[in-house]
Design a protein around this nucleic acid. Structure first.
Lengths: 305, 305
DNA sequence: GACAAACATGAATTAAATTCATTCAAAACA
DNA sequence: TGTTTTGAATGAATTTAATTCATGTTTGTC
């Protein structure tokens, strides 16, 4: 018998294009999803998608169920939001402190969506770059902070958002373009172009250069396009989220390379006061951020608490 | 996490007005449903209905989820119908043989609904009263027969529809009105008014009078209202489905009494050729009959295969 | 033609749902 | 005002279902 779980799977399946990735998305193993799908196809006595292609292709029946999933899961989300509002009212305050430049790329769509669902919640951004975003929470000048590490702290809880890969970018004809994987040393003779933020907020610095004691020349720029432009003009190299550079890669302005043997992974958490963790609109905001981001940005991976 | 199962429960809960009856409707125990509802309320951290009233009353949050259930389950049903059509085409033939007069009361609404969902299926009624409706199936003059007993027969499968109680009716000032429960002997001195069908098709005859060797005077009439009218005019007594007489009871024309210690239960099955049991439109027709009947007629109970 | 990647499969395991047996609470009845 | 009946709740036991683990199979790639 059909359950919402199956519809959630179908949606993940379409968004990721493969069983394995969909499984990760819904926090199950590939095996579990394979069994689940087998059961679903047995129930409807027909295949729902072809697995041989990449990305997988849905059959007519699969498409129909997928359409159902979209209709239904939206309605479920809307109803659950209302139920949450019935419990604790609609109003509240949600001031978001953001410390990373690229964060605005995914934050804006999520905030748009959220504003429509919770018109009575005062949504605001605490702008400027702060040494200690969590301090803003404790002094009640913000209600939610986007951070890249979940450092335990009294009165604060961290909720995982998602993870993504930081890639090194360089001009197509730059010597480094020949290397598949870059190491810390490869940066030594280069000019590193980055956003004007404290070093400890740069993932590349914290996780790669500092541990290796490598300290390249530096140059800053506020805007992602400007950084890309500088890199394309052979003014230096940069490390940016894969999803941020993907459009420029496709146009061939620059090339992207993996950093370090495992790749350089960047993680994002929402930090909030423990007392606020139960607020319905808080949880819905986080759910919205995840949902919108996974739907919009390529190459995201789930991040467990 | 919310599942369709929960929505199905909420719907049954509203239709029946009590946890126990809803449990029966979804083929679970009262205990199972109690646990399920407790879990659901814990998930939403608020009560979904008040149990102290009869019928139970939904809270605001409960109402909202109930509305969701209606929206969503309709869409699910529609999608599953389409998926079934994709598998085996939309066309087919469905000739229904009916042998009971009152059956038309629930058959018509179900057929109306079905016709809209399967416009390409030729829907027809094989009218007239036949000694052997199952014979019509085997000779391919009908595709589905409504019968009151599931007598095993080669090449035929019986699918349960529902059960209901047959009640004795009599004029308000008739002496029998004083008896809470009637026995076979109570009919001995009365005139029994019934539809003009063979004796073995009368539940009262088959299950009560014949076993007790009681053989009252008889009189027949084609129409339910006419039977009620005769009974109200003290021309005799009758046995009819509770749901068929309920409107007349409420207007006080006649009174209804239980027949036998356990009450006289009547069961209905759909008989079809084994080879047709897998046809999507057949299964959907049966589902429609059940769904519409339970939603329309008071006092139905589920019937297990 | 070996290798990797993605999916499938069967058995074992874990988790969840359901039942059973009983208690509790409220309503109906005498 | 007990007493009985009915409907719902509860905790433990059980059953069923979902999930994982370990491994096999297929398909595409170099």
């Amino acid at each position: 018998m059909l359950e919402l779980r199956h519809l959630r799977t179908l949606l993940a399946l379409q968004e990721t294009g493969s069983v394995s990735l969909a499984a990760e998305r819904v926090f199950l193993t590939q095996s579990a999803l394979s069994h689940q799908l087998k059961q679903l196809e047995a129930y409807y006595q027909q295949p729902l998608f072809e697995r041989k292609t990449q990305p997988l292709r849905f059959t007519l029946a699969g498409e129909r169920l997928l359409a159902l999933a979209r209709e239904v899961l939206d309605k479920v989300a809307a109803a659950e939001r209302e139920v949450a509002r019935i419990r604790q009212g609609e109003a509240g305050e949600l001031r978001v402190a953001v410390e990373c430049h690229t964060c605005f790329d995914w934050l804006m769509p999520a905030m748009d969506s959220f504003r429509q669902h919770w018109p009575a919640v005062e949504l605001d951004i605490v702008s400027g770059f702060h040494a200690d975003p969590v301090g803003l929470l404790l002094t009640r000048r913000a209600d939610l902070a986007i951070v890249s590490e979940a450092e335990p702290q009294a009165g604060i809880v961290h909720q995982p958002l998602f993870a993504y890969e930081m890639v090194g970018i360089v001009a197509r004809d730059h010597p480094l373009a020949a290397k598949k994987v870059w190491q810390a040393q490869d940066f030594a003779a280069e000019t590193l172009i980055h956003y004007p933020v404290p070093d400890e907020m740069l993932d590349l610095w914290r996780k790669v250069l500092l541990p290796a004691g490598v300290s390249p020349l530096r140059r800053t720029s506020e805007l992602t396009v400007a950084i890309i432009q500088l890199v394309a003009s052979r003014r230096g190299v940069a490390a940016l989220p894969f999803w941020a550079v993907k459009p420029y890669l496709e146009r061939g302005y620059v090339v992207a390379r993996q950093i370090g043997e495992q790749g350089l992974s960047s993680e994002l958490y929402a930090a909030l006061r423990s007392e606020d963790a139960g607020l319905a609109y808080m949880q819905d905001f986080l759910a919205t951020v995840r949902e919108r981001s996974f739907a919009t940005l390529p190459g995201l991976t789930v991040l467990e608490g």
